[in-house]
Nucleic acid binder design. Structure first.
Lengths: 195, 195
DNA sequence: GAATTTTTTTAGTTTCCACTACATAAGCAT
DNA sequence: ATGCTTATGTAGTGGAAACTAAAAAAATTC
């Protein structure tokens, strides 16, 4: 069988470029001409490889979580729940306002509102934020079993609280807050834990 | 002098309609045809009255804060800082996921990211969020003077923390969280206060 | 009633959007 | 080399975006 002309660009490399644009401008704010320009390819190549804008965005999201998910697992692997949360929040505070990459978590900034035609994307983002929250909840459940948290602690409520603080940090980072300011938020937030 | 044909629609009423659309879809996500349809007017009337989409949005924002600012001042008027924060967070949790109006605070959801042409709007939103934070900080400063907060408390850091939690509540509300869940976040957040 | 001023209506404008038809190019198998 | 298959570049598609020119309509003042 004939194999066809090989692809002239690297898919992952192109996704990384697209990711930056989506992260910076959001799903609706990123135009196809910006995307193709950043990726160094023409529209037909993009559509052949990713289907459409929505498909490209989902692939970029996968790439984003591949990149960021690791450090979350790492933080949650801390010996105690308190230390896990501390690492989580500190990492959020510092990573979300770094020079060289857009500020704020992409799962928050890329699509909180928009037209009807992008509602599926907002659903997807909300679902992925929820998945992050569930991971934290599981860590609290484990902590409870290990006696690391009091008997009356509510893992789900704790996880939602931590998630809310992280989401809030994203909003403030997107609005131009400094790393020091976000660090203070993280420190304050820690004091609410029942340990 | 001749007075000209009188306006056939009520400006404030039209602004309220536009506000709902902007709140629901965000600045970029709200199209002029949706806006004019909701307002019950034609584009030329809109442009004559508000200049352009950006001007309309700013006026709608004013209207939004006129509406929401009152309950914030009311919450901050509570006798103690702790009670003020409690009212603030509880009100956020309940008001931001009410049936009949879009979920989440408009200052957060209407524009966290987008194209270059709407950067002024994002600046404006960030500035107004900042103004809210400053109001809270002032309340903490007063509390410190009144001995309501310990000597070593940092009003600015506390205010940023409370603001972050409120912003986080907005993100979760926009993502479909229930009132009960947000209430739990508010309760948790309160425990971080040094009183 | 005529002149003046401002709003409204109609019917567009330009520009950019996501997306694609089509011809060409580049690899493989025979 | 000749097919065969898939990717690429050129050049566009229809449609929706924000916005507006021009005429008709509704009020005032003289």
């Amino acid at each position: 069988m004939a194999m066809g002309r090989p692809r002239a660009f690297d898919v992952d490399q192109a996704l990384d470029k697209a990711l930056i644009v989506f992260w910076e401008k959001g799903y609706e704010g990123a135009s196809l001409s910006e995307l193709t320009a950043a990726m160094g390819i023409k529209p037909p190549s993009l559509y052949a490889a990713f289907g459409n804008k929505e498909g490209l965005f989902r692939r970029a999201l996968d790439r984003y979580e591949e990149m960021k998910g690791g450090s979350m697992d790492e933080a949650l692997a801390a010996p105690t729940a308190r230390e896990a949360v501390q690492r989580l929040l500190c990492h959020a505070a510092s990573s979300q306002c770094e020079k060289g990459s857009p500020h704020g978590c992409m799962l928050v900034t890329a699509g909180l509102s928009g037209g009807e035609e992008s509602s599926a994307i907002r659903e997807e983002l909300a679902q992925r934020r929820q998945a992050g929250c569930a991971k934290i909840r599981k860590r609290f459940e484990r902590a409870k079993k290990e006696g690391d948290l009091p008997e009356d602690a509510d893992p789900a409520a704790l996880a939602r609280y931590v998630t809310a603080v992280m989401n809030g940090i994203s909003v403030q980072a997107a609005g131009g807050a400094t790393k020091k300011e976000l660090q203070q938020v993280a420190d304050m937030a820690l004091k609410a834990l029942p340990v």
